[in-house]
Amino acid sequence: MNLSAGFKPLAMILPGLALAVLIIGYPIYDLGYASLHEVSRFGQFRGLNGLTNFRDVFQDPLFYGSLIRTVIWTFAVVGGTLALSLPIAMMLNEEFYGRGLARVIIMLPWSISLTMTAVVWRWALNGRAGLFNATLMDLGILKEPIEWLGEAHQAFTVEILIGILVSIPFTTTIFLGGLSALPQDSYEAAAVDGATRWDQFRHITLPLMKPFINIAVVLNVIYVFNSLPIIWVMTEGGPANGTDILVTYLYKLAFRFGQLGKASAISLIMFGVLMVFTIIYVLLVMRGEAGADAEE
C-alpha cells in the first residue's frame, strides 16, 4: 500500500510531533540554559555562572544522601518487583479456578493513582490509630502500636515495599504478554524429552522470556527512579531528609527553597541518567523488532 504515499504520512505525524517537541523539547533546553546561569528565586536570570550550579550540587551532602537512597530505592523496588512478578505471571498464565478474579485483583493497584495509594497507606500506618497496627495487634503479632513512619530507615523500608506492590501489575502484564507468546510445543517436546518442570523453566521459559525480562528491568528502573508520589505523600522525604531521593530533593529545591539554578542542574543530571536507560531500552526494542522482521 505504498500508493504515492509522498508527504501524507509526514503530515499525519507532524501535529503530534510538534506538541511533543514543544512540551518535552523546550523544557530540556530551558533547564540546560538555567543550569548555567545564576537564577533568582523568582526565576530571573542574573547572568552566566558557568558550572557553579553543578559545583554546588556536587558539594551538597544532601545530594549525595539522596543519590545513595535513589540507588537503594531503585534497586530494591525493581529487584523485589521482578522476583515476585515472574512467578505471579507464570501462575496467572495457567488455567485455574478463579484466574480471572486473581488477575483483576493483582492488576488493581495499577488503576489507582500513586497519590491515593500513598494517602491510604499513610493513614493505615498511622502510629496511633492505623488499621495496620490494628490488624497486627488482632493477630497477636504486636502488643503496642508502632509509629511506622516516624523513623527514617523504617519509613524508607515501608516505602520500598509499597513501591514493589504498585510496580507488580505493570511488570506482570509485560510478563503475561511474553508468556502468552511462548510456543506450547516446545514444552511438549521438552516433556517428551524427559525434562522436569524445573528443567522446563530453566531451559525454555527463562531463555525465551529474557527479552521481556530485559525490557521489564529497564522500564521499571526508569519508572521507579522517577517516582515521586509515594515518598512525597507519605513522608515528604523526611524525617530530616532521611527518605529523600533525588526526585523529592529536586522538587523541594525547585518549589520550596527556590534554588532554581541548582534544581536545574540536578534535573539535567537526572536527565542524563534517564537518557542512558532510555537508550538501553530503545536498543532492546529495536533489537527485538529486527529479530521479528527477520522472521517475516
Binding site: 530540556i28 530551558d30 538555567a34 522517577n226 536545574s264 536507560f277
Partner: peptide
C-alpha cells in the same frame, strides 16, 4: 520514557 518530574521545573517555567 521521559518523566514529567525530570522536566517539571522547565515545564513550569
Amino acid at each position: 520514557m521521559m518523566s514529567p518530574i525530570v522536566l517539571v521545573l522547565g515545564l513550569f517555567r
